[in-house]
């Protein structure tokens, strides 16, 4: 006898089966047989531990490392070099090499738009690393370039933003980037 309740259960099962069909192509491997567990308490507990660990880490770092506070702002005295915060040093590095319209405007806009479009540009449906070598290599290249530019901006740029090995070897009167 098909009661309302059994109808609903059957409908749910159909939805679940359809979800699995769709999902099968969107997960790295078929996980539909993996053990199902209730989130509480195990999952919540893991998150809790991560939060406590992060808090402890922050407190320790904040006791040991003093955040920078230089002299009061003085519009009349421009420090040389003047540097942007470290996460923008990549941009500043590009600005020092390319025409400003390209480095300061066109390039960042291009990167942001490109990032939003990534899921539509990448036509490869697979999520297995071995089947998406090109995507992974391109992304690794992008990450490597960003990290390299930030490191260069922080440590290898001195007076007038000119290349300076002294930053690495230790330069007594000056300090670079956000680490000041």
């Amino acid at each position: 006898m098909a009661t309302e309740a059994t109808d609903r259960i059957a409908a749910r099962q159909r939805v679940e089966a359809r979800r699995r069909q769709v999902e099968a192509s969107t997960t790295i491997r078929d996980d539909s047989e993996d053990e199902m567990i209730v989130s509480f308490p195990e999952f919540i507990f893991k998150e809790f531990i991560a939060a406590v660990a992060m808090t402890a880490f922050l407190v320790v770092v904040s006791i040991v490392l003093q955040a920078p506070l230089l002299g009061q702002a003085n519009p009349g005295v421009t420090p040389n070099p003047s540097k942007a915060p470290w996460y923008f040093l990549g941009l500043q590095e590009l600005l020092s090499r390319f025409p400003p319209l390209m480095a300061g405007v066109a390039f960042p806009t291009f990167v942001i738009v490109l990032m939003i479009l990534v899921p539509f540009l990448d036509r490869n449906p697979s999520r297995r690393p071995s089947e998406r070598k090109v995507a992974i290599i391109l992304f690794a290249l992008y990450m490597a370039i960003v990290v390299a530019l930030v490191i260069i901006g922080t440590f290898f740029r001195g007076h007038e933003f000119i290349w300076n090995w002294g930053w690495v070897l230790g330069n007594p009167q000056t300090c670079g980037g956000a680490a000041c």
Binding site: L69, L70, G71, A73, S82, K83, P85, L101, V105
Partner: peptide, 20 residues
């Protein structure tokens, strides 16, 4: 509002001015 902050922001906002 120290020397680090106003000059970092001066550099940062200078980038904006290059947009056509």
């Amino acid at each position: 509002w120290d020397q680090l902050s106003i000059w970092a922001v001066t550099v940062g906002t200078n980038m904006a001015k290059y947009a056509p």
